[in-house]
Every structure is written in structure tokens, then in C-alpha cells.
Design a binder for these strands. Structure first.
Lengths: 194, 194
DNA sequence: CAACAATACGGAACACTGTTCCGCTTGCCA
DNA sequence: TGGCAAGCGGAACAGTGTTCCGTATTGTTG
């Protein structure tokens, strides 16, 4: 189905030019605010950086989660797509799993406050959580499955739990006394079959 | 030195009766508020439960960390003291370490929000962090050391890091889909020497 | 027992968040 | 160009933590 504009399945009637411009500006502003102040950067700060009113933020991104997802969508997508690739190119399923988790950890530790937000029970982050789950759990499950089938790892670990544990371990990375990558390494080591 | 009141080392001139009463009431109120709403329970809620004004809370417990520490001090103390005991009574240092970590995890997972508060970079929790570190890191280090000497575990793990990792893994316990204890088990398994 | 000073209390007031709402402006299309 | 739907700004509201000071309570002293 080559859906050009003649199809009836086009519920997005193309936004006004200024709206699109503002959305892009906002995305940039949020990204830079996130770097400086973490993903909890005050709404007013982001609005000020973008030179818009706070109402404009809420129109484009009704919840903070929407904004965060929009900012990081590309990277999450890339991480998700790396899963099957690694599985195909790595020597063992276990190696693929390890490398993929490294990718995920690298992503998380460079986003100040994101790991914490992911586990927060604050309702504002609900859909952020949902997005990560939807996008990454299946990928992790596939890797886990392959490794379990190859008898590389214990078969009783569940993708959701593992991803959550890894996310948790990434909280507080940035403290020089705490090496999140090393702790994740320990966890993954615990996964191996004796 | 049997220090009765004649000694000069008595910098606390015994508080007024109402002050002591309020402090106890406040401790009860906070404990029950923490159970209901987690350790982030609004100051006003705690004050209302205790039937006092918010000023009274701040006089007795200048930071939220002080209040949390006061509420949980007994349990943390007990955990700290269990370390040497376990080391003396367990069959192997590794068993002692495992049991001690179980104790710590049991404590954390039953205190809603405490694990998260422990890792929060919010300055209000700084001294909470410090208290846990001061009290528990040496105990953990002792256990770790014994296990490393017995060649039960890899020798390159550091007590601070391990405790922090365990604390992190306890965030979000309560979600039925996530079993913090099992994940900590994985981490500790990764510690074992092959 | 009464008066007094030190101590402690209460809660209004402030600062800083997120979030909503509505009058005004802007872009688009006829 | 005129009209109007879409979009915008920011004031206003609500929920936090935190401070401050006038008032009340307590313990002590004459």
C-alpha cells in the first residue's frame, strides 16, 4: 500500500508552520536542558531556552514523558535495532547479549537522571516506562532466549526483570566511586550457567 | 569512667518535657506516614498526624534525612551488628556475606521509597546517604574481605560499590513483576570465583 | 505561689515546582 | 484580503519544602 495523501488514513492534517518550528526548537532546548540539569529540568527552564511560553510545551508534549521520549527516540530505536544485528554477527548468543546490554548501559549512563526517572513511580513518567518496555523488552527477550537455548545462561531469567535491574544499576552513575558498568558486568556474570 | 551528671561532658542539657514528648510523637507519626506514603511523605502530612505545626518538625529534624535516620536507626544498627555475628556463626565467609546482604535487602524492600531516596542526589538526603555509608560500608567490607581471603569471591570488589548496587536493585521492589531479591541473588552469584 | 526567662510551638508567608486556562496572535485558505 | 481555526503566552492555581517570628509553655527562682 503506497499511501500518498489520497488515502483516508491520514489523521494528521499537517500542523501549522510555526507549530512545527516550535516543536523542533523545543526538542533542541529540552535536549540541552537535559544535559545540563538532567531529565527533571524545570519546565520553565526549557521554555525559556526555547523562547516560548510554558503552555506551548504542554501543547506539544502533554507529559514530561512525551518530551523525554521525543528527545531520545532515535537512540532507543537504534538500541532496539542493534539487538537482532548483534545476534546475527556475534560468535555466541551470550556475547551478543553482553554487547547489547553494554549498549543499553552506555545509553543510560550518559543521560543524567534518566535511569532514575525510568524507575520512578511518578505518574508523569508512566508512559516513558511503557515506551522503554515496549521497545526494548522484546529485543532483550530474543537475546535471552537465544542464550538460554544455547545453554549459555540460566533459563529462568525474564527480560523485563533483567532490563529493570540493569536500569536500576545505572542510577547514580557519574559518581566516581560507583562504576555502573562494572556492577552490570557482575549481574550478567551471575547469569551464566556454571 | 562512670559518667554521672557531675562530669563536664554533658553538652545536652536535657530538653523540655513537651519537646521530648513531641519528638516521640513525631517519630511515631513519621514512621506511620512512611509506611503509608513512603519516605517522601509530605512534611505537612507528618505534622498533621502528630498534631503539631511544621515548624516543630524542622526544629527537631532539620533535614528530612535526620527524620528518616531517627526512624530507622534501630534497624540499621541491628543490621550492622549482625555482620560480625554472621561471620562468626556461618560455615563460610561467603555464606555470611550472602545472609547479611539478604538482611539488608529485607530491610530496604520493606521501606517504601527508601532505596530510591538513598541514591537520590537531592541534597536533603545527603546525610541519610552518609549515615548508611558510615554504618554499613565497614561491615560489608569486613565480610567481603573475609570472603576474598577465603578465595570464595573475586577480590576486586569494593564494599561501597557493592552496597550501592544492592541498594539500587532494591528500587521498585513492590512491583510484582520485579523481584529485587532474585536480582540481588544474581549479582552476588556474579561475585563468586569460578 | 508568682514572676520571669528560656525554650519550644504554630502556622502564616515565601520560594519553587508542575499544570491549566483563556484572551490574544498568527498562519492558512478561500 | 477577510475570516477563522490553530497556536501561543503567561497569569493563575495547586502542591511541595523551608523560614521566621509572635505567642504559649515550661522550669526555675525569689
Amino acid at each position: 500500500m503506497a499511501d500518498n495523501d489520497s488515502g483516508e488514513a491520514q489523521p494528521a492534517p499537517r500542523k501549522r508552520a510555526d507549530a512545527r518550528r516550535n516543536e523542533a526548537t523545543l526538542l533542541d532546548a529540552a535536549a540541552s536542558a537535559f544535559v545540563t540539569s538532567g531529565v527533571d529540568a524545570p519546565v520553565r527552564d526549557i521554555a525559556a531556552r526555547a523562547g516560548v511560553g510554558v503552555g506551548t510545551i504542554y501543547r506539544h508534549f502533554p507529559t514530561r514523558a512525551d518530551l523525554i521520549v521525543a528527545v531520545y527516540r532515535h537512540q532507543v530505536e537504534a538500541c532496539a535495532q542493534a539487538g537482532p544485528t548483534l545476534l546475527a554477527t556475534s560468535s555466541t548468543p551470550h556475547a551478543a547479549l553482553t554487547q547489547w546490554i553494554d549498549l543499553f548501559v552506555d545509553f543510560l549512563v550518559t543521560k543524567h537522571g534518566l535511569a532514575a526517572a525510568l524507575q520512578s513511580d511518578n505518574t508523569a513518567f508512566e508512559s516513558l516506562h511503557a515506551y522503554f518496555i515496549d521497545r526494548l523488552v522484546p529485543v532483550c527477550a530474543q537475546l535471552l532466549d537465544a542464550a538460554a537455548t544455547a545453554a549459555d545462561i540460566r533459563p529462568d531469567v525474564n527480560a523485563f526483570e533483567l532490563l529493570r535491574a540493569v536500569g536500576n544499576l545505572c542510577i547514580g552513575a557519574g559518581d566516581p566511586r560507583y562504576d555502573a558498568r562494572r556492577m552490570v558486568g557482575l549481574l550478567v556474570a551471575g547469569l551464566r550457567l556454571p
